[in-house]
Design a protein around this nucleic acid. Structure first.
Length: 266
DNA sequence: ATGGTAGAGCATCTA
């Protein structure tokens, strides 16, 4: 259906690191931030344990793609949830894990992604990460076009540039910062996606979305910006505001990731 | 000091 007027949309993404443990904190943040579309990662629940009725009480339609103990991704939307694809589109080698779910929310084609961690450079899981990102690019071609309003949001487990890492020297030879991983992000840029946080803040540094639980890293400012919202041109040109909400990383039982929100005019 | 914490779930595995 043709769009008749500009719509303001608040998009959010959060690696919640267990929906079961974090449901009250999530409710608190949703009340505060009131996103229209919310991408979640690491729900760590099976589909039959996903609290869809709770989200419905909050005013959200949901789709969840989970497996139980690990991984699990969801999209919660006040703008509808249609044209759902669980995992990679048909024709692409299926994923062994639940790391991707796609839905149309309002006018946007939305993907919630939990990119494999990679564990260590050269590890079998690192190879899986790189191949997974190649498959994500193929998936984009299958479910959307670069001229559509498209958003790919989630935990990419890649810091796009050195300024997205608290100490680049500390990560030499580690995952999340290698040329091979960053090249996969460049390929997504070549498809037509841009880093929406950078649209709002082209030069900001020391802005992170994840801090290791250990060693007091959050309080010492040792973080990385690895949670990204990538958007096509139709989305990027409408970015009004972006925020990585560090306050949600504080207090009792925080996720190790902060949520990010992006305000758009579509 | 090759450490530390957190979540799954009950011995470790994953991050």
């Amino acid at each position: 259906m043709a769009r008749r007027y500009a719509a303001r949309v608040r998009l959010a993404t959060w690696n919640i690191n267990s929906l079961k443990v974090r449901i009250d904190r999530l409710r608190e943040w949703v009340d505060y931030a009131a996103p229209d579309v919310l991408c979640l990662q690491e729900t760590k629940v099976a589909d039959d344990a996903f609290p869809a009725l709770t989200f419905a009480e909050w005013g959200y339609e949901t789709v969840h793609h989970g497996q139980g103990q690990w991984n699990g991704v969801a999209i919660a939307s006040r703008l509808g949830v249609t044209e759902v694809v669980h995992g990679f589109a048909p024709g692409i080698e299926p994923d062994v894990d639940a790391r991707l779910v796609t839905a149309t929310c309002g006018d946007m084609r939305v993907m919630s992604v939990y990119v494999p961690n990679g564990r260590a450079v050269g590890h079998e899981q690192y190879h899986y990460k790189l191949v997974w990102l190649d498959r994500l690019r193929a998936h984009l071609d299958a479910v959307a076009g670069p001229d559509d309003p498209v958003v790919v949001a989630g935990d990419f487990n890649i810091a796009p540039a050195d300024r997205d890492v608290y100490d680049p020297a500390a990560f030499v030879g580690e995952t999340h910062v290698t040329d091979d991983e960053r090249e996969r992000l460049v390929r997504l840029h070549e498809w037509g996606l841009v880093d929406l946080f950078r649209v709002a803040y082209p030069d900001a540094d020391k802005v992170y979305s994840w801090w290791d639980y250990r060693r007091g890293d959050f309080h010492q400012g040792r973080g990385m910006r690895i949670d990204l919202a990538l958007g096509s041109r139709a989305v990027a040109q409408g970015v009004d505001y972006a925020l990585i909400d560090r306050h949600a990383r504080k207090g009792k039982l925080p996720s190790d990731h902060a949520p990010m929100l992006i305000d758009l005019t579509l």
